[in-house]
C-alpha cells in the first residue's frame, strides 16, 4: 500500500465531518476533500478509512470519488493550476495560456516531476466576466495575460507571496482542500469585496444615480 499520512487526528476530523450530517454518507464529499488535503490524492488508505467509517464498500467510495473532477486519481502537486478552457475563456485567450503554461511546465494535464504544479484544463469556473481566467488552488486569477501567467509561475516557483485577484494569499492546494472539507482557515477577510467586472453595473448606476424604486413604508 502506498504511503498515507492519515492518522488518529485525521480519523477524528473525518468523524467530525460525519457529525455535521444526519446521515453519515452525506459527509463523503468533504471527507474525500480532507483525505486529499492529508495525502495529496484520494489514497487507497483514504478510501478504506472512509468506507469503514461510513459503513459502505470501498467500491462505492471509489464510485463517488471518480465521479467528481476535483478528486485526483494521481498525487497532486503543491499548486493546482486550472486553466479555463470552456468556449468563452478559450476564445479570449485561455487556449493560448494553457499552451504556454503547458510548454513551460512540460506537462499536459498532469503533475510536474518536481511535484510543484498540477496543470489541468478546467471547465467554466463562473468568472466569465473576468475572462480569461486561471484558478490557482481554486482561487481566482482573473483577466490573465501571458505576462501575468509567467509572473504567476515565477512567483509560485520562487515561493514569493501570490495574491489572487479575488481570494486569500496562495498557500497550497492541500490547504485549500482542507478548507473545502469544511475546516475554516480564518482567511475570509483577505482579498477584495468584489472584482472590477463585478462592479461594472453598480458603478454605472452610481454614476447615473440609478436605483431600484423606493420600498413601501415600513
Amino acid at each position: 500500500m502506498a504511503q498515507s499520512n492519515i492518522d488518529e487526528k485525521t480519523i477524528e476530523e473525518l468523524k467530525q465531518i460525519m457529525a455535521r450530517y444526519p446521515q453519515p454518507r452525506s459527509a463523503l464529499m468533504p471527507m474525500l476533500h480532507l483525505v486529499q488535503s492529508v495525502d495529496g490524492v484520494v489514497s487507497q488508505r483514504g478510501i478504506e478509512v472512509i468506507a469503514e467509517l461510513v459503513g459502505i464498500t470501498e467500491a462505492q467510495v471509489q464510485g463517488v470519488s471518480t465521479f467528481y473532477t476535483q478528486y485526483l486519481k494521481h498525487p497532486g502537486g503543491k499548486h493546482h493550476i486550472g486553466v479555463c478552457s470552456t468556449s468563452l475563456c478559450a476564445v479570449m485567450g485561455g487556449d493560448a495560456l494553457y499552451d504556454r503554461i503547458s510548454k513551460r511546465l512540460g506537462v499536459d494535464e498532469g503533475t510536474t516531476e518536481d511535484g510543484m504544479f498540477t496543470l489541468e484544463r478546467v471547465e467554466c469556473n463562473a468568472a466569465c466576466d473576468f475572462a480569461p481566467v486561471i484558478m490557482v488552488n481554486w482561487e481566482f486569477m482573473d483577466n490573465m495575460t501571458p505576462e501575468k501567467a509567467d509572473k504567476l509561475l515565477d512567483d509560485l516557483e520562487a515561493g514569493r507571496p501570490v495574491k489572487p485577484t479575488r481570494g486569500a494569499t496562495i498557500t497550497s492546494w492541500r490547504d485549500n482542500e482542507r478548507l473545502l472539507a469544511g475546516f475554516y482557515d480564518g482567511k475570509a477577510d483577505e482579498g477584495v469585496s468584489a472584482g472590477e467586472a463585478s462592479l461594472a453595473g453598480v458603478e454605472i448606476a452610481r454614476e447615473n444615480n440609478w436605483s431600484a424604486p423606493k420600498g413601501e413604508a415600513k
Binding site: 463585478s198 453598480v202 447615473n208 431600484a212
Partner: peptide, 18 residues
Amino acid sequence: TDLLTPVLTENWGKDKSW
C-alpha cells in the same frame, strides 16, 4: 424604472461588505 436597479449588488465592492 431606472435602467439599472442595484439591490443585490448594491453593496458590492464596499469595504468589508462581506
